[in-house]
Write a protein that binds this DNA or RNA. Structure first.
Length: 197
DNA sequence: ATTAAGATGCGCT
DNA sequence: GCGCATCTTAATA
Protein backbone atom coordinates (compact mmCIF):
# COMPACT_ATOMS: atom_id res chain seq x y z
CA UNK A 1 0.00 0.00 0.00
CA UNK A 2 1.23 3.50 -0.80
CA UNK A 3 1.89 5.25 2.49
CA UNK A 4 1.45 8.85 3.57
CA UNK A 5 4.90 9.96 2.46
CA UNK A 6 3.99 9.37 -1.16
CA UNK A 7 1.25 12.00 -0.91
CA UNK A 8 2.86 14.43 1.52
CA UNK A 9 5.44 15.59 -0.98
CA UNK A 10 5.25 19.30 -1.62
CA UNK A 11 4.73 18.77 -5.34
CA UNK A 12 1.17 18.02 -6.37
CA UNK A 13 2.06 18.04 -10.09
CA UNK A 14 4.73 15.39 -9.53
CA UNK A 15 2.38 13.26 -7.46
CA UNK A 16 -0.26 13.49 -10.20
CA UNK A 17 2.24 12.01 -12.66
CA UNK A 18 3.53 9.38 -10.25
CA UNK A 19 0.00 8.16 -9.57
CA UNK A 20 -0.39 7.01 -13.18
CA UNK A 21 -0.04 3.25 -13.26
CA UNK A 22 -0.77 2.79 -9.56
CA UNK A 23 -3.82 0.83 -8.43
CA UNK A 24 -6.89 2.43 -6.85
CA UNK A 25 -8.83 -0.04 -4.74
CA UNK A 26 -12.12 0.12 -2.86
CA UNK A 27 -13.62 -2.52 -0.63
CA UNK A 28 -17.13 -1.75 0.58
CA UNK A 29 -19.50 -4.40 1.92
CA UNK A 30 -17.10 -7.14 0.90
CA UNK A 31 -17.11 -5.98 -2.70
CA UNK A 32 -13.55 -5.46 -3.88
CA UNK A 33 -13.05 -3.31 -6.95
CA UNK A 34 -9.76 -2.05 -8.36
CA UNK A 35 -8.35 -0.26 -11.37
CA UNK A 36 -5.12 1.12 -12.79
CA UNK A 37 -5.02 4.91 -12.64
CA UNK A 38 -4.75 6.12 -16.24
CA UNK A 39 -5.63 9.82 -16.02
CA UNK A 40 -5.13 12.51 -13.35
CA UNK A 41 -5.19 16.27 -12.86
CA UNK A 42 -3.36 18.44 -10.32
CA UNK A 43 -4.95 21.30 -8.39
CA UNK A 44 -3.24 23.76 -6.06
CA UNK A 45 -4.40 26.78 -4.08
CA UNK A 46 -2.01 29.01 -6.02
CA UNK A 47 -4.15 28.80 -9.16
CA UNK A 48 -7.72 29.77 -9.99
CA UNK A 49 -9.07 26.38 -10.99
CA UNK A 50 -8.63 25.09 -7.43
CA UNK A 51 -11.59 25.23 -5.04
CA UNK A 52 -9.18 26.52 -2.40
CA UNK A 53 -7.73 29.31 -4.57
CA UNK A 54 -6.48 32.20 -2.52
CA UNK A 55 -6.56 30.02 0.60
CA UNK A 56 -10.36 30.01 0.49
CA UNK A 57 -11.24 27.80 3.40
CA UNK A 58 -14.84 26.63 3.64
CA UNK A 59 -16.69 23.60 4.88
CA UNK A 60 -16.27 21.94 1.50
CA UNK A 61 -12.60 22.77 0.92
CA UNK A 62 -11.53 22.05 4.48
CA UNK A 63 -10.01 18.67 3.64
CA UNK A 64 -7.83 20.18 0.94
CA UNK A 65 -5.84 21.92 3.67
CA UNK A 66 -5.08 18.73 5.57
CA UNK A 67 -1.86 16.90 4.90
CA UNK A 68 -1.62 14.44 2.04
CA UNK A 69 -3.13 10.98 1.78
CA UNK A 70 -6.83 11.63 2.29
CA UNK A 71 -9.86 11.50 0.05
CA UNK A 72 -11.45 14.77 -1.08
CA UNK A 73 -14.79 13.94 -2.64
CA UNK A 74 -17.30 16.56 -3.72
CA UNK A 75 -20.44 16.81 -5.79
CA UNK A 76 -20.19 18.33 -9.26
CA UNK A 77 -23.15 19.65 -11.27
CA UNK A 78 -25.41 18.29 -8.57
CA UNK A 79 -24.96 14.77 -9.91
CA UNK A 80 -21.40 13.54 -10.07
CA UNK A 81 -19.15 12.57 -7.19
CA UNK A 82 -15.54 13.45 -8.05
CA UNK A 83 -12.69 11.74 -6.21
CA UNK A 84 -9.43 13.51 -5.36
CA UNK A 85 -6.42 12.62 -3.23
CA UNK A 86 -5.04 15.38 -1.03
CA UNK A 87 -1.32 16.07 -1.20
CA UNK A 88 1.24 18.26 0.52
CA UNK A 89 1.55 19.34 4.09
CA UNK A 90 -0.97 20.62 6.62
CA UNK A 91 -2.07 24.11 5.59
CA UNK A 92 -1.12 23.74 1.93
CA UNK A 93 -4.25 23.04 -0.11
CA UNK A 94 -3.58 20.69 -3.01
CA UNK A 95 -5.10 17.56 -4.51
CA UNK A 96 -4.98 15.19 -7.45
CA UNK A 97 -8.24 14.50 -9.26
CA UNK A 98 -8.54 10.93 -10.52
CA UNK A 99 -10.19 11.13 -13.95
CA UNK A 100 -10.01 7.59 -15.30
CA UNK A 101 -9.02 4.02 -14.43
CA UNK A 102 -8.62 0.73 -16.26
CA UNK A 103 -10.61 -1.89 -14.35
CA UNK A 104 -8.66 -4.93 -13.13
CA UNK A 105 -10.75 -6.44 -10.36
CA UNK A 106 -14.42 -6.69 -9.42
CA UNK A 107 -15.63 -6.27 -12.98
CA UNK A 108 -19.04 -7.74 -12.21
CA UNK A 109 -19.57 -5.27 -9.38
CA UNK A 110 -18.54 -2.35 -11.57
CA UNK A 111 -20.87 -3.37 -14.38
CA UNK A 112 -23.71 -3.68 -11.92
CA UNK A 113 -23.06 -0.32 -10.27
CA UNK A 114 -22.82 1.36 -13.67
CA UNK A 115 -25.83 -0.55 -15.03
CA UNK A 116 -23.83 -1.66 -18.04
CA UNK A 117 -23.12 -4.98 -19.71
CA UNK A 118 -19.91 -4.42 -21.61
CA UNK A 119 -16.37 -3.83 -20.45
CA UNK A 120 -15.43 -0.72 -22.39
CA UNK A 121 -13.78 2.67 -21.69
CA UNK A 122 -17.00 4.47 -20.82
CA UNK A 123 -17.40 2.08 -17.89
CA UNK A 124 -14.64 3.77 -15.85
CA UNK A 125 -13.18 6.63 -17.93
CA UNK A 126 -14.35 9.97 -16.62
CA UNK A 127 -14.18 11.44 -13.12
CA UNK A 128 -17.88 10.99 -12.44
CA UNK A 129 -18.22 7.44 -13.74
CA UNK A 130 -15.20 5.89 -12.04
CA UNK A 131 -16.53 6.89 -8.63
CA UNK A 132 -19.80 5.23 -9.55
CA UNK A 133 -18.01 2.03 -10.61
CA UNK A 134 -15.95 1.98 -7.41
CA UNK A 135 -18.83 2.94 -5.13
CA UNK A 136 -17.17 6.17 -3.94
CA UNK A 137 -19.44 9.00 -2.83
CA UNK A 138 -19.19 12.27 -0.93
CA UNK A 139 -19.66 10.54 2.39
CA UNK A 140 -16.07 9.32 2.13
CA UNK A 141 -14.59 12.79 1.92
CA UNK A 142 -11.81 13.23 4.46
CA UNK A 143 -11.06 9.55 5.09
CA UNK A 144 -7.45 8.39 5.19
CA UNK A 145 -6.44 6.23 2.26
CA UNK A 146 -5.88 2.93 4.05
CA UNK A 147 -7.50 -0.48 4.07
CA UNK A 148 -9.66 0.20 7.11
CA UNK A 149 -11.29 3.12 5.26
CA UNK A 150 -12.21 0.90 2.33
CA UNK A 151 -10.27 3.13 -0.12
CA UNK A 152 -6.55 2.86 -0.71
CA UNK A 153 -3.77 2.80 -3.32
CA UNK A 154 -1.41 -0.05 -4.13
CA UNK A 155 1.77 0.18 -6.11
CA UNK A 156 1.27 -0.86 -9.73
CA UNK A 157 3.46 -3.35 -11.58
CA UNK A 158 4.26 -1.04 -14.47
CA UNK A 159 7.93 -0.01 -14.57
CA UNK A 160 8.30 3.72 -14.17
CA UNK A 161 10.47 3.93 -17.27
CA UNK A 162 7.73 2.26 -19.31
CA UNK A 163 5.07 4.81 -18.51
CA UNK A 164 4.26 7.03 -21.44
CA UNK A 165 3.04 10.15 -19.68
CA UNK A 166 1.27 12.76 -21.80
CA UNK A 167 0.61 16.22 -20.37
CA UNK A 168 -2.19 18.51 -21.48
CA UNK A 169 -4.47 21.25 -20.19
CA UNK A 170 -7.14 20.34 -17.69
CA UNK A 171 -10.73 19.65 -18.67
CA UNK A 172 -13.64 21.93 -17.83
CA UNK A 173 -11.74 24.73 -16.12
CA UNK A 174 -12.24 27.58 -18.62
CA UNK A 175 -13.31 29.83 -15.76
CA UNK A 176 -9.74 29.76 -14.45
CA UNK A 177 -8.55 32.21 -17.12
CA UNK A 178 -4.75 32.04 -17.57
CA UNK A 179 -4.49 29.13 -15.13
CA UNK A 180 -6.67 27.06 -17.48
CA UNK A 181 -3.56 26.85 -19.67
CA UNK A 182 -1.41 25.02 -17.10
CA UNK A 183 -0.43 21.56 -18.45
CA UNK A 184 -1.57 19.82 -15.29
CA UNK A 185 -3.56 16.97 -16.77
CA UNK A 186 -1.69 13.70 -17.26
CA UNK A 187 -2.62 10.43 -18.89
CA UNK A 188 -1.00 7.25 -20.12
CA UNK A 189 -0.39 7.69 -23.83
CA UNK A 190 -0.90 4.04 -24.74
CA UNK A 191 -4.12 3.56 -22.80
CA UNK A 192 -7.60 3.68 -24.26
CA UNK A 193 -8.96 4.12 -20.74
CA UNK A 194 -8.88 7.92 -20.76
CA UNK A 195 -11.82 10.32 -20.75
CA UNK A 196 -10.74 12.31 -23.78
CA UNK A 197 -7.78 12.65 -26.11
C1' DA B 1 -33.09 34.39 1.98
C1' DT B 2 -31.80 34.29 -2.68
C1' DT B 3 -29.17 33.03 -6.52
C1' DA B 4 -25.59 31.86 -10.07
C1' DA B 5 -22.62 28.61 -11.66
C1' DG B 6 -20.13 24.36 -11.75
C1' DA B 7 -12.99 19.90 -11.97
C1' DT B 8 -19.80 16.01 -16.11
C1' DG B 9 -22.22 12.50 -18.59
C1' DC B 10 -26.12 10.92 -21.08
C1' DG B 11 -29.19 10.59 -24.78
C1' DC B 12 -30.58 12.12 -29.06
C1' DT B 13 -29.67 13.88 -33.86
C1' DG C 1 -21.83 17.40 -32.21
C1' DC C 2 -25.51 19.60 -28.93
C1' DG C 3 -28.67 20.29 -25.10
C1' DC C 4 -29.79 19.46 -20.67
C1' DA C 5 -30.50 17.34 -16.00
C1' DT C 6 -29.76 18.47 -11.09
C1' DC C 7 -28.49 20.36 -6.47
C1' DT C 8 -24.73 21.82 -3.42
C1' DT C 9 -21.81 25.41 -2.44
C1' DA C 10 -20.56 29.94 -1.62
C1' DA C 11 -21.17 34.76 -2.61
C1' DT C 12 -24.29 38.54 -2.04
C1' DA C 13 -28.01 41.13 0.56
Amino acid sequence: MLNGDFFKKDDVVGVAQDLLGEILITNFQDRLTAGIITETEAYHQSEKACHAFNARRTKRTEWLFHDGGRAYVYLCYGIHHLFNITTGREGDAAAVLIRAIEPVQGLETMLERRKQEKIQPKLTSGPGVLTQALGISVKYTGVLLEKTSGIWIEEGTMAKSKKKVIASTRIGVDYAEEDALLPWRFYLGDSKWVSKL
